[in-house]
Amino acid sequence: MADDRLIVALDFHHMEEVRELVNKLGDSVSAYKVGMELYYSVGREAVIWLKDEGKKVFLDLKLHDIPNTVASGLCSLMDLGADMLNVHAEGGYTMMKTAAERLHKAAEEANVPCPKLIAVTVLTSISEEEWADLGFAQDVKIKSIAVRLAKLAKKAGLDGVVASPHEAALIREACGKDFLIVTPGVRPAGSSVDDQSRIATPAAALKNGATHLVVGRPVRSAEDPVQAAKNIIKEMEQV
């Protein structure tokens, strides 16, 4: 049985690859992430096809611009029927608040369910060393900034954030039980780390407070993707 908390990342260039994996996974996976790589290659087709197949879609485009541009962009994306959209929290409070208000208003006027809107805090590929290179003082840690951005997103009216499993527990404590925490950087035991820095196993991520897990290569690159997805779900169910 599928678990909506597991979101498989479709980091492909072509719809043929998308159809092949989604059809192969069948009922074992119910939710997928469409990111920049796929969306910039095939555009709206990916989201529309997935929705026609009865799947949930996290459209991960990380909008980051002036408030009106981001809000207008989200309203355009809403028409695709994606279940979850996101922005960069570093765009600031006004950008996030404007985006949330405009998106909810557009959904109400169109008489459609409003997609969940979440904000990216600190990318999971950034290590503590890279963090220092960005010019932050030595005593300003990734965790503290991630929590601050999460609290700002909640204040702005967003539904949750994207954050690494390492920050999930602190964000859960700061933002409450109903706040969504979507965690990339999830790697089952024995999987390759790839280009991620702040990672955790599915069970550890959920124990830390994550509500959704984004998993890409450990499923896509597995010899048996269906079994890989089932193994992750089995681990998730133990928490």
Rank of each mutant, 00 (worst) to 15 (best):
G135V: 12
W49R: 02
R44N: 15
W49L: 05
A204T: 14
A46E: 11
S72G: 01
Y39M: 09
S221K: 12
E128N: 15
W131S: 09
D60H: 04
E16Y: 05
H64R: 06
V162S: 00
A228N: 04
M36R: 08
A204P: 00
A150W: 04
Q138V: 06
E109M: 10
D159G: 00
V219A: 03
K141Q: 14
E20D: 15
I145P: 02
E45F: 08
G135R: 11
V214T: 07
L206I: 14
K141V: 14
V162A: 03
C175P: 03
A82E: 08
L61D: 02
Y40Q: 13
I66H: 10
D11S: 13
L213K: 04
G92T: 02
A82F: 08
F58Q: 02
E128A: 13
D60Q: 02
V42C: 03
I118G: 07
T201G: 10
N68R: 11
A9C: 11
N23A: 07
A222R: 03
K141A: 13
Y40L: 14
A9K: 05
W49H: 07
K154Q: 15
F12Q: 03
Q238D: 09
E90R: 10
A205N: 04
N68K: 09
Q196S: 07
D65W: 11
K154L: 11
A82H: 07
I126E: 06
P225Y: 04
S125A: 13
I7K: 01
G135E: 10
L152Q: 15
A168M: 11
L80N: 07
E237H: 10
V18M: 12
A222V: 01
D159C: 01
D52A: 13
Y39D: 07
H212C: 10
E37C: 04
L117R: 06
R148F: 09
A205M: 06
H13F: 11
C75M: 12
A71L: 12
E90Q: 13
C114M: 02
P113M: 12
G26I: 04
S192F: 00
P202N: 04
A46Q: 09
R102I: 02
G176W: 00
W131L: 13
D159A: 00
L213D: 06
V215E: 06
A200E: 06
L170F: 13
L25E: 03
T69R: 07
D224S: 10
E235C: 12
P184V: 10
G185N: 05
L25Y: 03
E129L: 05
L206E: 09
E45D: 15
A189Y: 12
A2W: 00
L61T: 01
D159W: 04
G26D: 02
N111E: 14
H14E: 15
A222W: 03
F12K: 00
D83M: 11
V140T: 15
I199H: 01
A82S: 13
V162I: 15
T94R: 14
P113Y: 10
A163F: 02
G35S: 12
A46M: 10
S164D: 11
H104V: 12
V147I: 07
K151R: 15
E53P: 00
A137K: 14
